[in-house]
Design a binder for these strands. Structure first.
Length: 781
DNA sequence: CTACGATCAGTTTTT
DNA sequence: CTGATCGTAG
């Protein structure tokens, strides 16, 4: 029975068994944080016989929620098979009807997902439609632009994004428009106050909420209707919050309210990994937890299961320079390991080449067997470009995490706009977006006439469209167009009452002519866009088993609350979760994504949080890049950059390379940057370099109060030619051919399709692999 | 309404 | 050097 506790170290066990009262778990990087959290919940259910309905676990990302649910299924019902789409719909506030579901799971989800579910149920009490839509950044911006126009304000002077960020900041501090106006102390703030008021009104009119609203309105609901709060306080007797260092004020209040009755609140986090203050995270929430909950128990998890001692020492030396942190030091039972490599390159291209060379060297020596063992981290997305070029030239498969988001693609946003209007015809922003997409001759003038009419009759845009024939301002031709338009919508509404989300999408694609519109120009790009739409349908079809209407609502909810297709697409679990995960999500991965995923990961340091890799490269360690130039003169922000460095270093399990370039092409010009100050924090005895350094005291600088800067002297040629040859010609293979792969050895070709060969390798451990002929180091034998 | 050239700004990003 | 955005011309 208590095998649960057997898997844990002493501190973890203590955390798991502390079930009552407020508990703060300070969990260092790689200390088995998720393990402690999931085991604690499993312990509550299995040993303390707490009904899962009374347990709530809050995370920051859907990915984290999914991972936690998967691990809970493993713990609570080990023989259950894992199905990701069912998993996604499990752990909701109210279970959705589904032919099969992990009903034994507690409520697990992000702050936003939890609040959406609460609001869907009760928001009518605040006089919003329960079918409200959720506006993303683009919707918000479009709305703000129209508001600026209405208020005759110049976009140049009042940048919509800046206004929105003010409003977002206010909302995350729970400041209402009225409150904001009272504290406005400048013309700018006065204007923001006016726009904030107008923005709120517009959202309400459109029956829409933005992301910050999801939290703020839930709190508003709780304060306005105490019975509802009471209901949830009764419901959630045991609450845990992951990544507590990333909570903002409103999230803090939300949790405080929910846990007030039973006071069984477990928060877990690491202030050293707080890297999101720029989006409202308030590090004080974790630093001052004891003040808020005087009888709180505090447990520190300091044993690290990930990295070598040298890596931990280096990370420690970097982070101890921060003032705002709690005392803690990670330790490990692992061996010392390799020294930290600090490498100097002449320029950004050479920096990338050093990385590429090293990756190939390690692969060939079988030290790290797959591309997935490597990650390259950088501060700014712009840095990925050179890496891509070089990797392409070297034939190294890579994948970039982050960047272009699936849902931000135009075609996806279009279809979703259709769906949003289908669900909620009040949604003006979405309506405007697709009114003339595909082109149906409803231009600006027509829209204006409609809006004017709607305004006069005090009805919404959609009603106005239905009454097009009564609008004198419109030519007869336009009236007919609009009449057909309204008729089309009627069909969409009907589709929604008959079909699931995927059925509605198909109806829309066909009836609106969007498919033809997309494919009209016959270019490969339009094909790719159509593929994206099909991908959307396949994501939607996961909701086919739900009843009509509900299916669309649930699907839209997920799409609005998820940004990256990777988190919803088939390759979840592809990047290395913590090793304890044991790849639990990998079961439903198919072979194709398996091979597609064998690539070096390229991402920003922010994106790397929570992940781990055997071999890590951090590039661009230069003053002005990392730490970023905007943070250089703000001590608080510099501390955050330092935490980012800490996060970067602690991703590494075995090897880490820290690179900087003396010159870098940035914004079209060559700039020279000093090596990052973080490099100086790592004691020299933990380091080896590709270049010897001699310390010279630059007199002028010293007089200016700067510390001596190491000046580097080249002692060896650092320009190394790659011995790896890119396949300049596609190797021609057919079924049955025997081949040799530099890493996997001999094998036989099973099939070849579109530049991809499926090969069975002799080595049993290697097995069957799918390889890209353009990049794989293959030769025919 | 689309297409094209000028102009300008340029961390990090989840929900 | 990019990418985004905007204004003008067809």
């Amino acid at each position: 029975m208590s095998h649960l506790l057997g898997d844990l170290n002493e501190k973890q066990r203590e955390a798991v068994q502390t079930t009552e009262g407020p508990l703060l778990i300070i969990a260092g990087a790689g200390s088995g944080k998720t393990r402690a959290l999931t085991y604690r919940i499993a312990y509550l259910i299995k040993e303390k016989n707490i009904d899962p309905r009374h347990i709530l676990a809050v995370t920051f990302t859907n990915k984290a929620a999914l991972e936690m649910k998967a691990r809970l299924v493993k713990l609570l019902s080990p023989h259950e098979s894992l199905n990701k789409s069912i998993l996604k719909l499990s752990g909701r506030l109210e279970p959705v009807s589904w032919n099969k579901s992990y009903n034994f799971l507690p409520t697990v989800g992000t702050f936003h997902a939890l609040c959406v579910q609460i609001l869907r149920k009760h928001i009518h009490l605040l006089h919003y439609e329960n079918t409200f839509n959720i506006y993303d950044a683009a919707d918000q911006k479009a709305l703000m632009k129209t508001l600026l126009e209405e208020h005759r304000l110049d976009e140049k002077k009042f940048n919509p994004v800046a206004i929105l960020s003010q409003i977002s900041g206010a909302k995350s501090e729970l400041i209402t428009p009225e409150h904001y106006r009272k504290m406005a102390s400048s013309y700018f703030m006065e204007t923001v106050a006016t726009l904030y008021t107008a923005y709120e009104k517009a959202l309400h009119k459109n029956s829409a909420l933005d992301f910050d609203d999801l939290i703020m309105k839930t709190i508003g609901l709780f304060q306005m209707v105490p019975e509802v709060l009471k209901e949830y306080q009764e419901r959630f007797q045991y609450i845990s919050v992951d990544e507590y260092q990333d909570t903002n004020h409103s999230q803090y209040i939300l949790i405080k309210l929910l846990s007030e009755k039973h006071k069984n609140l477990c928060v877990i986090g690491d202030e050293d990994q707080s890297i999101y203050s720029w989006r409202g995270a308030d590090i004080r929430n974790i630093l001052e937890f004891e003040k808020d909950y005087p009888n709180a128990r505090i447990i520190k998890l300091e044993q690290n299961y990930r990295s070598t001692q040298i890596i931990l020492d280096a990370a420690h030396q970097v982070i101890v320079k921060n003032r705002k942190r709690k005392e803690k030091k990670l330790w490990t039972e692992k061996k010392e390991g390799q020294k930290i490599r600090i490498w100097t390159a002449r320029n950004e291209r050479e920096e990338s080449e050093l990385i590429a060379d090293e990756i190939l060297k390690r692969l060939r020596s079988h030290e790290f067997p797959t591309y997935t063992d490597f990650v390259v981290l950088y501060r700014m997305n712009a840095q990925s470009r050179v890496l891509e070029e070089v990797f392409m030239r070297y034939g190294i498969p890579y994948k970039i995490v982050g960047g272009i988001k699936f849902y931000e693609r135009k075609e996806i946003k279009d279809i979703i706009a259709y769906l949003k209007v289908t669900q909620n015809p009040q949604d003006l922003m979405s309506m405007v977006r697709i009114m003339n997409t595909p082109p149906r001759n409803i231009g600006e003038k027509t829209l204006e006439a409609l809006q004017y009419y709607a305004h006069r009759q005090n009805i919404n845009l959609f009603e106005a469209i239905k009454q097009a024939e009564q609008i004198e301002d419109l030519a007869e031709g336009k009236q007919i167009i609009l009449k057909n338009f309204a008729k089309m919508w009627k069909e969409f509404f009907e589709a929604n009452s008959q079909f699931s989300a995927s059925g509605v999408i198909k109806t829309i694609l066909q009836r609106s002519g969007y498919k033809e519109f997309l494919l009209a120009d016959g270019t490969p790009e339009s094909e790719a866009r159509w593929d994206n739409v099909r991908e959307l349908i396949s994501v939607a079809s996961k909701y086919d088993a739900l009843p009509p209407g509900i299916s669309l609502t649930t699907f839209l909810e997920e799409v609005s609350l998820i940004s990256d297709l990777d988190t919803i697409g088939p390759s979840v679990g592809s990047i290395n979760f913590n090793e304890e995960t044991g790849g639990v999500l990998r079961e439903n991965k198919n072979e194709v994504s398996e091979e597609k995923d064998n690539a070096v990961t390229l991402m920003t340091l922010h994106g790397a949080k929570g992940l781990e890799f055997p071999c890590v490269f951090i590039s661009g360690l230069e003053e002005g890049i990392f730490p970023h130039s905007r943070s250089l003169f703000e001590p608080e922000q510099l501390e955050e950059e330092r935490r980012l460095m800490y996060v970067g270093i602690t991703r590494a399990k075995e090897d880490i390379f820290l690179l900087h370039a003396r010159q870098r092409l940035l914004y079209g010009e060559y700039l020279s940057h000093e090596p990052s100050q973080f490099l100086h924090d790592i004691p020299e005895e933990l380091v080896t370099r590709n270049i010897a350094i001699a310390i010279i005291k630059p007199i002028s600088l010293e007089r200016m109060g700067h510390k001596p800067v190491p000046v580097e002297w080249p002692t060896q040629s650092i320009l190394r030619k790659s011995t790896h040859r890119v396949n300049d010609r596609l190797i021609q293979l057919k079924d049955g051919d025997k081949v040799r792969h530099t890493i996997w050895g001999e094998g036989m070709v099973l099939s070849v399709t579109g530049g991809i060969a499926t090969i069975a390798f002799r080595e049993e451990k290697v097995g069957i692999k799918r390889v890209a002929l353009s990049v794989a180091p293959l030769e025919k034998i």
